[in-house]
Nucleic acid binder design. Structure first.
Lengths: 143, 143
DNA sequence: GTACAACCTGAAGTTACTATAGAGAAAAGT
DNA sequence: ACTTTTCTCTATAGTAACTTCAGGTTGTAC
């Protein structure tokens, strides 16, 4: 099958497929005489795997890692578990960060009820007065 | 004061300050005879405001919006509230997305307890078998 | 034979910065 | 006064995971 069909089956765009090939996530397939990419069942499986990992917000590095592990069927899957556990930690951290953010935002939001002039707006005053904190370095690739 | 002092007071790097100037978030200041940027109290206030917005994970577009509103003191702050409410919605959505993600990840994680070979690993099987869903377009800039 | 969709490559744009290189200016030490 | 160190300047490239664009080729339908 050609790239359009593959992309459709994996629910992504053809540009994304070509991008994954450049990135080394998806092996370069055979070509037709006219230079069109020709994919088979193995490619669908691989791409689906990648897209599912992405749906779980894994980074390309994490995915590359997982794919390499999956390609050595004889080995144990302790490493797979490790990648997964690490990723779950990332997600957890980000959820906690956002929850805290939401509290701050809600507190600020309550400082302005209605339609006063902006120079007495509690939100803007709050934003100007907040204690500026150093940028927290992020330990997760999740934004 | 020069850029290093300003950056220190706002808890960011000098590169970030220069970047904000290029982006139009911070007005270009006067220069010394030696071409060094010279900042005053108004710049500190402005930069603090920006950094506080960033600490709340607002995008530059949202911040630009707020700054423009704050610069028209006579007008009502309904628009400010709107920016804020919209941003809170973004954060909420992202929290829900991540919570759902975590459930999926935990469910998958339970499919592999220990050290079997990877070709029978429940996690990898799960990743290969998951129903591939179309990439949800994001309505938030939060990762 | 000609219109049109699907495909090709390569490069640039996105966000909010960070990092680097190479050079000039100012401050500190002797 | 001289040297060393620190600060600042501009311009450019890199980050993640794509998307978009420009310009050209192939395949297919009528």
């Amino acid at each position: 099958m050609k790239i359009g069909k593959l992309a459709q089956l994996a629910q992504c765009t053809v540009e994304t497929v070509r991008y994954y090939e450049r990135e080394g996530l998806l092996a370069a397939p055979a070509r037709t005489a006219g230079n069109f990419r020709l994919y088979g069942a193995a490619h669908i499986e691989r791409l689906r795997f990648i897209r599912n990992c992405r749906a779980l917000d894994m980074s390309h590095d994490e995915i590359r890692n997982l794919l390499a592990l999956a390609d050595r069927p004889a080995e144990g899957c302790g490493a797979v578990n490790a990648v997964f556990d690490q990723h779950i930690v990332h997600v957890d951290e980000r959820i906690r960060e956002l929850a805290q953010l939401k509290e701050q935002l809600s507190a600020l939001r309550q400082r302005c009820a209605g339609e006063q002039a902006v120079d007495t707006c509690g939100i803007l005053q709050g934003l100007a007065a907040m204690e500026t904190e150093a940028r927290h370095e992020r330990h997760t690739h999740l934004g």
